[in-house]
């Protein structure tokens, strides 16, 4: 009875949370080492209006239109940044700051002014997602995991996020060597004839795929946290890139599981009645892990 309840109510959101966390943390390692850590932040801000417009045009929350909308918003923001930088004669960082926040604010306004009451698309959702509501009503216990009929009733976010994770992992596995090389020493990589610019762009695109796929299930807070916290904590555990990526995946998984459990049961344990946002708690746990690594990690000192 406990088992069937767990499989129906907790297993799907935990699995989705783990997929989101790992899919964002993996490319986050490279973004962090390339000093582009805030790209994850930028992506999740910029894509919001694109996703909302895609919903307004199609009337459904589906992966394809959302990705297209997000991509359109990203292109628009790149053009806007360039225009502001050149016409306003200001530095790129300031132009980005203006565009990212403006795009996100525009997305929030669009959300508020449009009728999205029929679907889970509102401002709170954009920030925190609705991880807790992604339950599996067809589940009748662990045996349902082998039952095709029951499996068909899985929340659609789970296979969607699993595919995004596979895409991210396959990209990193395939291009590991040139990515590592271009991240460490771009000049040398270009001297070898490696296409470092397309490679960097591909990394951002793959990160965007993870962010957009995750957005619907868990909102933007967790995406931002997962791009940065697990890789940053992992960097302090090891001095080898491969190990760092493995640590980051482990930290991401741990954050998702502990965060979900704490959000659901933590308030009850301390005597409160309501549970808290799982996405918020997962992001918080990843931050706590980063804090612990910063205090106790074996390689936290910057070597001279």
């Amino acid at each position: 009875m406990m088992g069937s309840e767990f499989v129906a109510l907790s297993l799907p959101p935990i699995l989705i949370g783990v997929c989101v966390a790992v899919a964002c943390a993996l490319p986050g390692n490279f973004l962090l080492l390339r000093r582009q850590a805030l790209i994850g932040d930028a992506i999740s801000h910029v894509v919001l209006p694109g996703i909302v417009v895609a919903f307004l045009l199609t009337g459904v929350v589906a992966a394809g239109p959302m990705l297209l909308g997000a991509a359109g918003a990203a292109v628009l923001s790149v053009i806007a940044i360039d225009l502001i930088r050149r016409l306003g004669r200001i530095e790129a960082g300031a132009a980005m700051g203006v565009v990212f926040t403006a795009m996100f604010a525009g997305g929030v306004l669009l959300l508020e002014r449009s009728d999205t009451s029929s679907v889970h698309l509102d401002v709170e959702h954009a920030l925190f997602g609705n991880l807790e509501s992604l339950i599996w009503l067809d589940a009748r216990g662990w045996s349902s995991l082998l039952d095709p009929a029951a499996l068909a009733g899985l929340p659609v976010e789970l296979p969607r996020m699993a595919i995004a994770l596979v895409v991210v992992a396959a990209f990193l596995w395939l291009f590991w060597r040139p990515l590592a090389l271009a991240t460490f020493d771009e000049g040398f990589a270009r001297g070898l004839g490696l296409p470092t610019e397309p490679l960097g762009l591909a990394l951002v695109v793959v990160s965007a795929i993870a962010a957009v796929a995750a957005f619907d299930a868990v909102g933007s807070i967790i995406v931002i946290a997962m791009f940065i916290c697990p890789p940053a904590a992992a960097r302090m555990m090891t001095n080898r890139l491969g190990h760092q990526v493995a640590w980051s995946a482990a930290f991401a998984t741990l954050s998702a599981i502990i965060g979900y459990v704490l959000a659901g049961y933590g308030p009850i344990w301390i005597g409160a009645s309501a549970s808290v946002s799982a996405a918020g708690m997962i992001a918080t746990v990843s931050g706590v892990i980063l804090g612990i690594a910063a205090v106790a990690g074996p390689h936290r000192d910057k070597v001279s």
Partner: peptide, 15 residues
């Protein structure tokens, strides 16, 4: 090609 030493981040996690 041997680039300038200062052109890379020597804190990069590699041996």
């Amino acid at each position: 090609y041997v680039p300038q030493r200062a052109s890379v981040d020597w804190d990069f996690p590699t041996r």
